[in-house]
Design a protein around this nucleic acid. Structure first.
Lengths: 208, 208
DNA sequence: TGTCGGTCGGACCAGTGGTCTAAGATGTAA
DNA sequence: TTACATCTTAGACCACTGGTCCGACCGACA
């Protein structure tokens, strides 16, 4: 998190720095982004930047937390209208996809987080906490499903979460790469894709 | 691929270079690995190294092709004893997991390839071809399943492949991180995990 | 002996993230 | 107004990255 001084900076300048950083990180991911370039484009000197942020990671985490918050808010918007676990699941999926298309930069930022090499996400890595907190949302979603009897409980939680998380990445990627295939039929395809999650996660009565 | 001269080098030296490179890449992935360190540890000068390999990518591809070949060979070993598509699928899964445990370095190398940021794997990226050729194996596996009527054909191939590929990564990771949970019961867990793939991929008759 | 091509050592380059110091700006109190 | 202290800034510098390049060395062959 930025040093407290950053909050004292004029809001315009704060926003300017974060916006430059967001586009650099969105385009190049964490490692690919050049901190020097961000500093330059923000019109700051090195000393100034390191005066407000501890390091590159600090700035990245700041930018990403904001992106994740916005995406989460969009994902949950109108969730109360969906009845039943899987309907809510589908609603969230559609909302998040719509959000990504409306705000490509935020979408790219979040995708970049998932795309980061394991070494960065792993315990001890720079973005460990950020990644873990994002993943935690999936854990809670699965647990909610289990509580409602809609998600199987015969497998280790970590396994289901890992698989569902991986499927989520794959499905998101497919969606944004196949907009022509999908066309106007977003409802049909959303149901189709959610169907994949249901196949994996729903209890079927044949579990050991 | 290495320059032809590399083949003329004494086999010991060839092996030495590749072995140093393999452990550096296995431990740190492509980007995390230091080419300078490899050069130093291999006891070469920069001029010499760049005389044999075009660049870091060239060396990486060379090392990884070998690792993939070995893993594929191990994966297919004894495949003829397995009857039926999903039995073969399970056999391959068990073989690949066993290979990874027996040869952690090769396993880490392949995992590192999958873990590489999209920017490197994407069209135009340095390891585009390497990644594509690895992924192609999944494509062919899925297509074989479709030909045998064991894998649904109602969804776009790219979607199924993407999802199965993502699941594969998740499942592999879970396996190596949960060896205690698995214990001696590798057969049971392999069946359990393959069950996840079957749930997603098998035709069920309710497809649109 | 001369030369020519294969081999190699290492200086050098532009870039990376990060540190540090000295100067300038600003606020506060005498 | 002056003096001092604290906040803010600029940018030189550092160790590192992958990559280029040129000169020297060396063995083979004329």
């Amino acid at each position: 998190m930025p040093r407290p001084r950053f909050a004292k900076l004029e809001p315009d300048k704060q926003a300017g720095i974060l916006s430059v950083a967001a586009s650099e990180f969105a385009e190049n991911g964490f490692e690919g982004a050049s901190y020097n370039r961000i500093i330059e484009q923000a019109g700051l000197s090195k000393g100034a930047m390191y005066y407000y942020f501890d390091d590159k990671t600090d700035l990245y985490v700041t930018v990403l937390k904001d992106a994740i918050d916005r995406m989460m808010a969009a994902t949950l918007e109108g969730i109360e209208d969906a009845g039943g676990y899987w309907a809510q699941f589908e609603h969230m999926f559609k909302q998040s996809v719509a959000f990504t298309l409306e705000h490509p930069e935020f979408g790219a930022l979040v995708r970049g987080l998932l795309d980061a090499p394991a070494r960065l996400r792993a315990a001890g890595g720079p973005i460990e906490k950020l990644y873990a907190s994002y993943r935690q949302q999936t854990v809670e979603l699965i647990q909610a499903g289990q509580a409602q009897g809609e998600v199987r409980t015969d497998l280790p939680l970590e396994l289901i979460v890992g698989v569902m998380f991986g499927m989520g990445e794959a499905v998101d990627r497919w969606w944004i790469e196949n907009l022509e295939t999908i066309g106007d039929d977003t409802d049909r395809w959303a149901r189709e894709l959610i169907g994949l999650f249901r196949r994996v996660a729903e209890p079927r009565g044949d579990e050991s």
